[in-house]
């Protein structure tokens, strides 16, 4: 049967992996190719690379980074950041991405998802949704521009619309939890995964294996994490052994398991 995926996330700025809380205060976390290969050896099921470069020069570097990672990496690679039109997605796919994630630009112009799906297939079109609990009332709203903009748009409604427009998968980040190490927002995960038929990747808040298991038991099909891997707290293999012991279908035929 299909196994739950563990997905390390690399935030890349001008060709280097960086990390920071809520995308602020970025610190260097290593070379993208070396880190990617290390995670594949540890048993990562996929990788996500988010280009957080703020400048056009940095964005140009992202394509070079994707191509360099692709030469070595033998597992799927999703790339996001700065995807504003189908041609941006095409350039990333040509460089070696297998899937492309659109975030702010898809909120601003939802047709973008349809364009990517029409050109490259829904299996390439990932919508990244950053969601935060509404200040008033129940539910979550979509936030964009790295959290600077609270849209007021209902996150569940946007997830449904994104899928109708062609998104084949949802990368769902809890803005309240991201970088806090307090666990995924399992209520948000349950609400979104109950509302759509496509796979949902949980993101934001992971600090220990139990957090990833909670997310998978709350409807997520895959779990994404960054700092717990970059900081060396756990290897991917460490996490997957705990998952398997908890009865979660897990791919454990790891060829090597060292950082």
């Amino acid at each position: 049967m299909l196994t739950a995926r563990v997905i390390p996330c690399l935030d890349v700025n001008s060709g280097r992996v960086v990390k920071g809380v809520r995308f602020q205060g970025l610190r260097d976390a290593g070379d993208p190719v070396e880190l990617s290969m290390s995670y594949e050896r540890q048993g990562a099921d996929e990788l996500v690379m988010l280009d957080v470069s703020a400048t056009p020069e940095g964005r140009g570097n992202a394509l070079v980074t994707v191509a360099a990672v692709r030469q070595e990496l033998g597992i799927p690679l999703t790339v996001g950041g700065g995807v504003r039109k189908a041609a941006d997605a095409g350039a990333l796919l040509e460089a070696g991405a297998d899937k492309v994630a659109a975030n702010t630009a898809a909120v601003t112009r939802p047709e973008l998802l349809t364009e990517i799906a029409d050109h490259f297939g829904s299996q390439c079109a990932i919508v990244a949704i950053d969601a935060a609990r509404k200040a008033e009332g129940d539910g979550w709203e979509v936030v964009t521009l790295s959290g600077k903009n609270r849209t007021g748009m209902d996150a569940i409604g946007w997830a449904r619309e994104a899928v109708e427009r062609g998104a084949g998968e949802i990368l769902l980040t809890s803005w309240d939890r991201d970088g806090t190490r307090s666990g995924y927002d399992t209520d948000l995960l349950q609400a979104v995964s109950d509302s759509v038929h496509v796979p949902v990747i949980a993101s934001g808040g992971a600090a220990k294996p139990e957090h990833l298991i909670e997310a998978l038991q709350s409807g997520a099909d895959a779990v994404l994490a960054a700092s717990i891997f970059h900081d060396g707290d756990y290897t991917v293999g460490d996490i997957k052994r705990v998952m398997a012991a908890a009865g979660i279908p897990t791919r454990l035929d790891l060829t090597a398991d060292t950082p």
Partner: peptide, 13 residues
């Protein structure tokens, strides 16, 4: 079928 997530994304045995 409708009983499973589609697309199937991931590692299967």
């Amino acid at each position: 079928p409708e009983t499973v997530r589609v697309p199937q994304f991931g590692w299967n045995d």
